[in-house]
């Protein structure tokens, strides 16, 4: 459906517009507080500036923070997804192609990974190694590989029986070469679509970790961190939670619509 695509595009334009244009051109500082201008509601003037989305507990402009926060969150989520996707795809291909005990081992790891609620695992690890931007990316990246591995493995199992791969094997090409030269291109598209479908999960996960106060350290804003900080003030300044929440919703809806569209277009119903 074309309408889905249009909605997704509009939402993405809004989100990306905010996270690119605001940090570049919006004059107000996302980090530095003006202590005399705390909790100004949206569209109010304070200190000679208009605050379209209001200010927070330290008098910082929410639009400036939302712009930077969205950029940082998307950065975290993208990098983490790529780590997950690469890790999962490689392990999945290996499992599918080699079979046997390698397959069994990797698939048990997948089960294990899926058997601990993500959020619990992430809390545990962040509590151990301490919260920071890098740690968060690594933890989100490492804990998300399992789905990619499952799909990559299933796809590899199909692909390896294809004629030209059999013939590549027959002429004695090295296994790893076959894997990356012939198998990988075949599963690249479904893995990319899977990534699009998995992004919403990560966006919400990152927000949840931030909500529990274990995300990126202040004063750096992230979508999750903004809601996490804002919730303490939610009863008197609901905009602090409202707008970051809407941004999350917009991103998730856009990814879902886009993902579904990609699934239909590439005929990948098994995802």
């Amino acid at each position: 459906m074309q309408a889905d695509l249009i909605v997704a595009c509009i939402l993405l334009v809004v989100a990306f517009g905010t996270c690119i244009l605001v940090p570049l051109f919006w004059p107000l500082d996302p980090v530095r507080g003006v202590f005399s201008a705390t909790f100004k509601p949206p569209m109010s003037f304070a200190g000679g500036h208009l605050h379209p989305l209001g200010t927070d507990q330290l008098g910082r402009d929410l639009l400036a923070r939302l712009g930077l926060g969205t950029a940082i969150s998307l950065g975290i989520v993208f990098v983490a997804s790529v780590i997950s996707a690469v890790l999962g795809t490689v392990l999945g291909m290996i499992a599918g192609y080699f079979g046997g005990w390698v397959d069994a081992l990797i698939m048990r790891l997948v089960d294990m990974q899926l058997a601990i609620p993500f959020i619990l695992l992430i809390l545990l690890i962040v509590a151990v190694i301490g919260p920071s931007l890098m740690n968060l990316i690594v933890v989100l990246g490492i804990t998300g590989w399992a789905i990619y591995a499952r799909v990559a493995r299933a796809r590899t199992l199909e692909v390896r029986e294809l004629e030209y791969i059999e013939s590549a094997r027959a002429i004695g090409q090295r296994k790893l070469f076959i894997l990356f030269r012939h198998v990988l291109p075949n599963i690249l598209v479904p893995q990319t679509v899977l990534l699009t479908l998995d992004l919403p999960r990560l966006i919400i996960l990152e927000a949840s970790v931030g909500f529990l106060g274990l995300g990126v350290q202040p004063p750096t804003p992230t979508l999750g961190g903004l809601i996490g900080e804002g919730r303490s003030f939610m009863l008197i300044a609901n905009w602090l939670v409202l707008y970051p929440g809407l941004m999350i919703a917009a991103l998730v809806i856009a990814c879902n619509l886009l993902g579904d569209w990609l699934v239909r277009r590439n005929d990948l119903r098994e995802l």
């Binding site: 919403p200 927000a207 809601i227 929440g245 999350i248 919703a249 998730v252 809806i253 879902n256 619509l257």
Partner: peptide, 11 residues
């Protein structure tokens, strides 16, 4: 249903 999947539980 799109909205239901898009808003975080805590929100």
């Amino acid at each position: 249903s799109l909205l239901g999947q898009a808003v975080p539980v805590f929100w």
